[in-house]
Design a protein around this nucleic acid. Sequence first.
DNA 1: TCTGGGGTCCTAGGACCC
DNA 2: TCTGGGGTCCTAGGACCC
Length: 413
Amino acid sequence: MLTAVTTPTARIRRIAHLDMDAFFASVELLRYPQLKGLPVVIGGGRRREDDMLARLRETYPEREWTGEDLAHIPVEFFPRLETYVGRGVATTATYAARQFGVGSAMGLMKAAKLCPQAILLPVDFDEVRRISRLFKHTIREIAPTVEDRGVDEVYIDFTDVPGGQREGGRVLARLIQKSIFQATGLTCSIGVAPNKLIAKMASEFHKPNGISIVHMEDLQTLIWPLPCRKINGVGPKADAKLQGHGIHTIGELAQRERPWLVAHFGKSYGAWLHEVSWGRDERAVQTESEPVSMSRETTFDRDLHAVRDRAELGAIFTRLCEQVAEDLQRKGYVGKTIGVKLRYDNFQIVTRDSTIAHFTSDAASIRRHAGLCLKRVDLTRRIRLLGVRVGSLAKLGEVPPEPERPPEPAQLF
DNA sequence: TCTGGGGTCCTAGGACCC
DNA sequence: TCTGGGGTCCTAGGACCC
C-alpha cells in the first residue's frame, strides 16, 4: 500500500505555536484600560491600589471613590519605574515600553534608567492564572490536542482539526485568535508549521496579534536567514560557541556536515543541531505531563551570612520548606529527593540533595533533610539566594512499593 | 544597572550489582 | 587474583526555557 498517501486531500502535519502578547502586562491593562498605549513594566513592587484610591479621595473629595473606580484613576497617580528600589527584574513590558529598550528578564534598576516614566505594576498571579485557564480552555474547545508550555504559551496540533488544513492552518488560527479575544479581550500571535520547532519560530514573525504560516518549502527563505539563537534550545552558550566557529545563521549551520557538528558539539547536541537546521522535528504535541520536582526559592533584599544573619536565614529556610510542603500537598504529590540551592554573592550556584527512604510532603521532614543538605555547603560566604526542592515525585496514592534497602551501616563513632 | 522564580533535561562520575 | 562489560541509582552542575 504505497500509493494511498498523495491524494489532493491528504492531510499533512500542521502544528501551531501560540504565544499571548505581553501577557502579564496585557492582563493589567484589562483592569486599567487608561494605561493603553503607555509604557508599562511588570515586576517587583506591590499593589498600590489603596494608595491610589486614598490620593483620589484627597484630591477629589466631592466624589465617592470605591474599588470599582480603578479604570478611572488618572494616569499620573500610578507608580513610576523611577521610584523603584530593589533587586527585581521585569517580567514583561508593553510594546510602548519596549520602544525604550526595556525587555523581560531585565533588572528593574536598569529598566528605570532606560524608561523612568514607565508605569510599574506588580504581577497579579491569581488573575494571570485565571486568564491563562480561560484562554487554554477556549483553545481546547476548538482544537483538543494542546500542549502546555507555561502560563502564556501552548502548542496545538492542527492536523486533524476541522479547518486545520485550510490555507495551511490560517483559517483555524484566525478562529482561535478571534475566540481568545472574545473570551479574554487579549491578543496572541500564532505560527503554524510542519512541526513544533518551526511553529515556535514562526509565531514570532508578526507579533503582536499576528499569524504566520510556514511550509517545509519555506525553510530556505524564512528560516535559514534567522540567527541560530532563534532555535528553541540554542541558548547564549551554544550561540557564542557557534559564533566562534563563524556560524551566525541557521542557514550557515545547515551547511556544516553532521560529523563536524558532532565533533564540536557532542554526539547528541551536534546531531540535534544538524536536524533542526534542516527544519526536522518529529516531537509530538504532549497533552499531559507529570511534574518531576517542586521548589521554592527566594532572593534576599540584601546578601545574608549564615552566622551573622542566622535567625533571619533560619526563618526564611523554614518558610521555604513550609511552602514546598503546601505546594506538594495541595497538588497531591510526595517526593523523596530533598535538596537545597544557594546562590552566593558572586552568583555562583551550588546544590546539595539527598534521597531518603520514604516519600514525604511533610514540612518538618523536608526541613530536617534540607537542613542536613545545608550543612554540606560552604556557609562562610555571603548568600544571595536560598531555595528548597523536592524531587523524585510520585502521586499520593500511587507511591511505588518500597525498594529493599540494605541495612544502614553501623555507626562507628 | 548587576542579573527573579519555577521548571526540564542532559552529562558525568562513582557506587553497586550481575 | 585479575579482567571485562552492562545496567541502574545517586549526586552535582550546567544549559536552557517560560
